[in-house]
Design a binder for these strands. Sequence first.
DNA 1: ATTTCAATAATTTGATCAAAAGTTATCTGA
DNA 2: TCAGATAACTTTTGATCAAATTATTGAAAT
Lengths: 216, 216
Amino acid sequence: MNQLVTKKPEHETIYLRVRDMILFGEVVPGQPVTIHGLAQAIGTGVTPAREAIRRLTAAGALVSRENRRIEVPDMTAHRLEQIELVRLTVEPALAEAAAKRCKPHDIKELERLDALVDEAIKVGDIRGYLEANYHFHFYLYGLADAQILHRIAETLWLRIGPSLRVVCGRYGTANLVDHHRKATEALWANDPQKTKEAIAQDIRQGMDFVRQTSAD
Amino acid sequence: MNQLVTKKPEHETIYLRVRDMILFGEVVPGQPVTIHGLAQAIGTGVTPAREAIRRLTAAGALVSRENRRIEVPDMTAHRLEQIELVRLTVEPALAEAAAKRCKPHDIKELERLDALVDEAIKVGDIRGYLEANYHFHFYLYGLADAQILHRIAETLWLRIGPSLRVVCGRYGTANLVDHHRKATEALWANDPQKTKEAIAQDIRQGMDFVRQTSAD
DNA sequence: ATTTCAATAATTTGATCAAAAGTTATCTGA
DNA sequence: TCAGATAACTTTTGATCAAATTATTGAAAT
């Protein structure tokens, strides 16, 4: 019998788990991450935890300080500026490419995800908002079939995840606006250019929102 | 007495070593990389080699295939297009920022590195060209004080390193043109905008050159 | 000669251990 | 009470080992 599920290695699982922790605000900028503590928290050995941490530091999601301590990097205005520059190049390009390959079935899925975003905002569920927002964007980006851009976008989201959590915690979800409607409408209209612009606008406003927390 | 050199861990050394191997064309697209073989080649244990490989796969410099084999990714026109898009955003921005903080001493160093590029082209030393070219660009980018952009640029160079080596090997260094003079002149003139444009032009022509090897 | 199947070899993966390095707590002496 | 030194604890790091997985080799059958 064919084995349908290819068992993924432990370090891959841990990597995905910690990645989610960072993306969805379970960690805070400046928070130290120990290889031991991580292994213990997840309930696994230290070897796969090490490898997961290496991958995350390579992606810039964690930083390794000189005393070989590892922690979640904090955000600065300067870093935010760099991230915005690249996001505004990469993600609209992904959205444009996605729009060209998008099927009605995909747009419906995006609308479903967007409804989750709205719901989370209304209820004030920060974690739910972060997850739904991420899934909306990366379902769209996944349609683009552009792995390199996709991965760059992911590393940038890993960098803003913790800060986004902080600012949401401070100001709540009331100030959040959902700009995804414009994107799905452009997709229905089969208009890649408009989709691209909608995502660019969404990014600009998201980054403005995060800017409220960054130290100088 | 103060310890001036902080001993860097083994996995860091190996990482840098393999990184150089990729950047400077000691590996070929499609070439398999075994964790064992690497440890044996460098003459070290398997644990630090593993961690170095994880970092490189996280950066996209190596790809992990489904049969948990790891190899150097090959280049395609589509990938090249994605890389060019991001390079043309990130590196000119770095050059512009660098131009604003550049001291005469730095420009002299850049001219020294550029002379090495010229020399390598003249002599037909491919490895020497790759190294000198890299050092010219990243000495400049290092002046910008923009770590995030800097690291993104590095990952992109890691992706084109093997292909650049292949195309140089096929066509030799005769077809290479050195566009750095325009950049150093703009730096002397204290003209960030011109510096930015010079680097953008250099990137475009470099990518055109690599395009000759990529499969469809 | 080619294909199939089993056996062998090589490799990855995760656990464990010892040594090195760093951090925290305690104790001492003023 | 407070500063400095020592001790105890924690963490990282690299080596080693066993199990699991994958590739490769070789033999047998058609």
